[in-house]
């Protein structure tokens, strides 16, 4: 069966080892976590984990069931099959070398990217978007010479409730 990327949102009790348990149950059973985001919710005791993993329908069902077995897991939702909104964020550093300086400034302006640090010899950009928008940005940025980059995992929100 066809493998596709699934976005799974998990509400957990905010315990020191909860991430180890989740990583353990997936890794131990041979499922790879492609991306991961964790933070507390409006209640400090409860964290939300959003992760993406590759698999067919059956594999994903198994992953969800394995997660539900964990004592610290409160709720598991698969956001792939419901209407939901997805975002990633990147921070990128570009060096303003003499030969690229003009080109960098033009590309940043045309794409209306947000410059969060502007120094004499470098820039730091903050770009958010869904997966394809980030990929699009990276394709533009790459020829300009990315010195350093950090990309978050996907975060997602269910639009249906």
């Amino acid at each position: 069966m066809e493998k596709k990327e699934h976005i799974i949102s998990v509400l957990v009790h905010n315990k020191p080892d909860v991430l180890a348990r989740i990583a353990g149950i997936l890794g131990g059973k041979g499922y790879n976590i492609e991306s991961l985001c964790v933070n507390t919710t409006m209640q400090y005791e409860v964290s939300k984990i959003v992760m993406t993993t590759l698999g067919n329908k059956e594999t994903i069902m198994r992953i969800e069931n394995q997660l539900r077995r964990l004592v610290d897991v409160i709720q598991v939702d698969n956001l792939t099959n419901v209407e939901s909104i997805h975002r990633e964020l990147i921070l990128v550093r570009l060096n303003l070398t003499a030969d690229k300086k003009e080109q960098i400034k033009n590309t940043v302006d045309t794409n209306k990217w947000k410059v969060i640090v502007s120094a004499d010899d470098y820039l730091i950009l903050e770009i958010t978007g869904d997966n394809s928008q980030i990929d699009f940005a990276l394709a533009r940025l790459e020829p300009l010479g990315i010195v350093d980059i950090t990309r978050t995992g996907i975060i997602a929100l269910n639009l249906e409730n």
Binding site: R21, G28, V71
Partner: peptide, 11 residues
């Protein structure tokens, strides 16, 4: 021991 038994205990 909690690390060691994580994958082989219920909790």
């Amino acid at each position: 021991i909690t690390g060691i038994t994580r994958p082989c205990s219920k909790h």
